[in-house]
Design a binder for these strands. Sequence first.
DNA 1: CGCCTAATGTACGAACCAGTACGTTAGTAA
DNA 2: TTACTAACGTACTGGTTCGTACATTAGGCG
Lengths: 221, 221
Amino acid sequence: MTSVEEPARSNGRIRDAARTQAEILDVATGEFARAGFDGARVDEIAARTRTTKRMIYYYFGGKEQLFTAVLERAYGVIREAEQRLDVEHLDPVAAIRRLAEVTFDHHERHPDFIRLVSIENIHGAEHIAASEKLGRMGSPALDVIRRILAAGQESGLFTADVDAVDLHAMISSFCFFRVSNRHTFGALFGRDLVDPGRRGHYRAMLGDMVIAYLTAERAAG
Amino acid sequence: MTSVEEPARSNGRIRDAARTQAEILDVATGEFARAGFDGARVDEIAARTRTTKRMIYYYFGGKEQLFTAVLERAYGVIREAEQRLDVEHLDPVAAIRRLAEVTFDHHERHPDFIRLVSIENIHGAEHIAASEKLGRMGSPALDVIRRILAAGQESGLFTADVDAVDLHAMISSFCFFRVSNRHTFGALFGRDLVDPGRRGHYRAMLGDMVIAYLTAERAAG
DNA sequence: CGCCTAATGTACGAACCAGTACGTTAGTAA
DNA sequence: TTACTAACGTACTGGTTCGTACATTAGGCG
């Protein structure tokens, strides 16, 4: 039964701390996202890696810290994506729409991340609070929004006097809900919000909504 | 040590099936909302009622069915509130704004409900799927939205061609996210979305957003 | 080429927790 | 008053699950 697919193994032990840690994080992400913090099983995570439970405790310390590490990495990915954001050469309306679309696409592509954030909220964001790394991470997207908003408001194009944080909340809420509440919404109203056939529809709807809000004619305040 | 607060008890046992069940449901709602399905402890629920764990199994069958019963009751409350909705005497713009505000207020007043729904989504809405009661519950709010939307679109006031389900999703997403993601959002961006001082601000923001979307000037389709 | 330590594996324990077997009492109907 | 049943309580169990004590090996460094 010597397998052809496993190269250069004497007794299977190949030492690579970085790879072992990364593999644990990968599997843990899936398991936590699948079942929640308390529903996740450390033994199950171990079983799905090429290493053992012992290594999880060796590298991460415990289930709680493992979850924190998973969160840190997941947030790291979104912060990276935000840093690649390149919209400030566009006019404010186009820039905001593009930003909304990028946010939309990121949520679409990372349902596990959404689930992790939902889970973290159930637990009162205690892991974020305990993480130095997550505290220090700013939000590149917020800075971008701030600048676009300032330009749009100065030019008179944008009539709403929202700030960047609230606009970010508005955009996120739509993107997040669509993925996070997919199951209950589908079960109760018979419509799958993540149906690929409706993806473009919702993406446009989000952009229309945000732009309409920002540019609406207002009664004088 | 005879307590004055406990009237007419010989050995404390007063039989009232309905009250016992209701008390279990009350406590279970809090416990599930606090800790999630897997984090919730049946023993803890029992300890916080005036009855014992045995009764939970006697009346509900198990932890899973208890959670389903909790969900059914929570959804029942929101459906009742929706039935009391009385906005169709208003013009379409005012009616939609009022509807959004009522939705907003309900989310504000029932954070436990929001948490239960988040939890149910983590578990793929399997309890809703298993519940006949929840399947049969329609949504009064959807019918109301449908009629207002039709009126607004016919009169030309509303330019967007959304349907009721999508508009409901739009309104819900903002209201839901504000409560469900309060903790992570607060930890990461330093703003408490549920701060009472900002309540009016977000309520108006939601209304403005929905009305702006519905009445925006559009390029001909 | 042998030593030392980071990295890994095995086996186990102790607490926890959903669920149940069995016994008891309150209220009611005859 | 008695008999019957719905409603309730106690005590326990069997399996699960996080975490760890202890043993082992790979591979770089001197």
